[in-house]
Design a protein around this nucleic acid. Structure first.
Length: 593
RNA sequence: GGCUCCAUAGUUCAAGGGAUAGAAUAGCGGUUUCCUAAACCGUAGAUACAGGUUCGAGUCCUGUUGGAGCUACCA
């Protein structure tokens, strides 16, 4: 069925054409939702039309309004304020919507078909040398919710992860473990694997820093000191040995990586996410290297005297970019070229989304250009979902200063707070420990996820631990609590029929139905703009609107039978929409809390 | 130096070029014989600065100031 905005739009064009006998360009008509403080549902802004009508705004608006009211049974009235034509949609239309479309469990979601666009979305993409932190959490939550949202918007989505399991950073942890580890393992230390490996990465850095300092004190220039610290040279050599398949290095690498993967899997499970496919850089980097060498042969890339290979991007307004080191080893860009090519071969995607922080904007710009240079016309199907950094109130997270918020610790903390809040309120005292734990987990994780997803992805955000454990206001638990109250009503009203009937609707009800009618559009907007915050904020508004309704009107003890039927239907449908939307954000909803 | 992004109540966030810039939180003051008070209501408080485009600018353009990121043979 056609959206009512489109119907109004078409009628408005018709009205102008009939009234003033002129042709109207489509884009000039803008329909928007009427602001709360005015009477009406949809508003036509007539200012842009004055050039055509050559009449004052009020007269123009009134004529269009009268025409629309006469030609559509869905419009039951209108009013004109300055240059704004506010149209009132009939209650019978809203009642039909509530009882029909909105009530469907799949409301808002577009089913998949043969022609659905194929989307690959890559996120998480951790390094195997340190545990996940708050920044990764933002990445993972954005990636996972975008995958759900894109899927709901009718795209065929493949979620993939690319593990950066090779490169000099891995060698650094390995080196430190070899030198200082004394055979320590997750089992012997009791540490989660990723945390254990992260410990040795830090240990490496400590040695490196002190060696650099020593060189500086002996009179080396800064640059030389940083490039020639003995421990760095050792790491370089280890990387070379790794690339030439040295069995000893490989065995160490595999052992330490397996620790890390076990740790990551645990964190992923807790966050409620999973991937359709996981790629390992160690398996893909060689393809990149061969593509680069092919590009060199074809003359679209060039090599320097020392054997390193470069792309000249001056024509594109950028500088020169290294693609292979002089020792022949790959850099980050090299393997990304390879994985992109491989992915296209596997999925023939219509678009490929990389969820990566905005500090890599330049990298993805270059990646597309290099792929273009290599002759891949699908290079412009790559999108970078570039999100801002997560900062703490005291500034950036710095691992060296110990101000990194660890993902696992944070999740523990959120669940602990949920437990504490709930126990203070005493609402779950009658339930068993198992159910209580599940609810604490849902609420704690809901708080964390919503806190991060409500912020526009592309913006930097501040994570204030104090504020994050405040479960009042614009928070996940607020929406969950609203949902729990809805479910309570639905339980108490079981057996009572739910139907719209013929009763007039109060303004709050019209407002709520109109919001739910917008839900499909919100999903599409969030999908198109790669921004889950649109959905998060919509759900908050809906929950808030419901809480006011709930406060002002009795549901189960309304004055008349048919009011109870109508309101119970309202409540049930609102619950469905909230649950559906929160699911797209990856947030579980408790039946009670 | 060059390139990119950002600047909105004390604080954290909203606002598809449109009406009186919305919320939350912190502050102050209220609401429970009534469906879950993790709720609801009231009060006070903001577009960095200077120009420009437009019927209309927080939003677009130019400049200034302030902040972040990138500009690595790190990933």
């Amino acid at each position: 069925m056609q959206r009512i905005e489109e119907i109004i739009n078409a009628l408005a064009i018709e009205a102008i054409e009939v009234s003033w006998n002129i042709k109207v360009p489509q884009e000039i008509v803008q329909i928007q939702k009427t602001r709360k403080e005015f009477q009406g549902d949809y508003t036509l802004v007539v200012f842009p039309l004055l050039k055509l009508s050559r009449k004052p705004p009020e007269e123009t608006a009134t004529r269009i309004g009268a025409y629309i009211e006469n030609h559509s049974p869905m419009i039951s009235g209108f009013n004109v304020i300055k240059g704004f034509l506010n149209l009132v949609v009939s209650h019978s239309f809203w009642r039909e919507m509530l009882e029909g479309e909105l009530r469907q469990a799949a409301h808002g979601k577009v089913p998949l078909s043969e022609s659905s666009a194929r989307v690959v979305i890559e996120y998480s993409s951790p390094n195997t040398n340190k545990p996940l932190h708050l920044g990764h959490i933002r990445n993972i939550l954005l990636g996972h919710s975008m995958a759900q949202i894109l899927s709901a918007s009718g795209r065929r989505v493949h979620q993939v992860n690319l593990v950066n399991d090779r490169g000099i950073h891995i060698c650094k942890s390995m080196l430190a473990w070899e030198k200082q580890g004394k055979g320590e393992t997750p089992d012997t230390s009791g540490m989660k694997g990723d945390h254990l490996v992260g410990k040795y990465y830090v240990a490496y850095d400590k040695v490196y820093k002190s060696q650099v300092k020593e060189l500086l004190d002996n009179g080396s220039p800064q640059k030389t000191a940083e490039a020639e610290a003995p421990v760095l040279l050792e790491a370089r050599e280890m990387l070379l040995n790794w690339e030439s398949d040295d069995p000893k290095v490989r065995a160490l690498w595999e052992m330490m990586n397996s620790w890390v993967y076990a740790g990551f899997d645990e964190t992923y499970r807790r966050l409620g996410i999973g991937f359709d496919r996981t790629y390992y850089e160690s398996e893909t980097y060689k393809l990149g290297k061969s593509l680069i060498l092919k590009g060199l042969e074809e003359g679209v890339l060039y090599s320097r005297d020392d054997g390193s290979v470069w792309a000249n991007l001056e024509d594109e307004g950028l500088d020169h970019k290294l693609l292979l080191r002089s020792d022949g080893t790959s850099v980050y860009m090299t393997q990304d070229v390879g994985t992109a090519r491989q992915r296209f071969g596997e999925f023939e995607f219509d678009s490929h989304i990389y969820v990566v922080g905005n500090e890599q904007n330049y990298h993805f710009q270059v990646l597309a250009l290099v792929l273009k240079k290599l002759g891949y016309e699908w290079a412009d199907r790559l999108y970078h979902l570039s999100y801002g950094m997560v900062e703490l109130p005291e500034g950036k997270m710095k691992s060296r200063e110990g101000t990194v918020v660890d993902a696992d610790d944070l999740m523990d903390e959120m669940e602990r707070t949920a437990r504490q809040m709930s126990e203070e309120l005493g609402k779950l005292d009658e339930y068993g420990e198992e159910e209580k734990s599940r609810i604490y987990r849902q609420v704690g994780m809901g708080a964390l996820k919503y806190f991060i997803l409500k912020v526009d992805a592309k913006k930097n955000m501040t994570f204030d631990p104090r504020e994050s454990v405040d479960f009042n206001g614009n928070t996940g638990p607020f929406i969950q609590y609203t949902y729990a109250r809805i479910k309570s009503l639905v339980r108490k009203g079981s057996g009572i029929p739910r139907k719209a009937g013929e009763t007039p609707l109060v303004d709050k009800e019209v407002g709520l139905i109109r919001m739910m009618y917008d839900y499909p559009e919100v999903i599409q907007d969030a999908a198109d703009s790669l921004n889950p915050s649109l959905l998060a904020n919509f759900l908050y508004e809906l929950a808030k609107e419901f809480n006011q309704y709930y406060h002002d009107y009795s549901i189960l003890s309304a004055e008349k039978e048919e009011l109870i039927h109508l309101r119970l239907l309202m409540v049930e449908v609102i619950g469905q929409v909230i649950e559906s939307g929160m699911e797209l954000l990856g947030i579980e909803m408790p039946e009670r809390m």
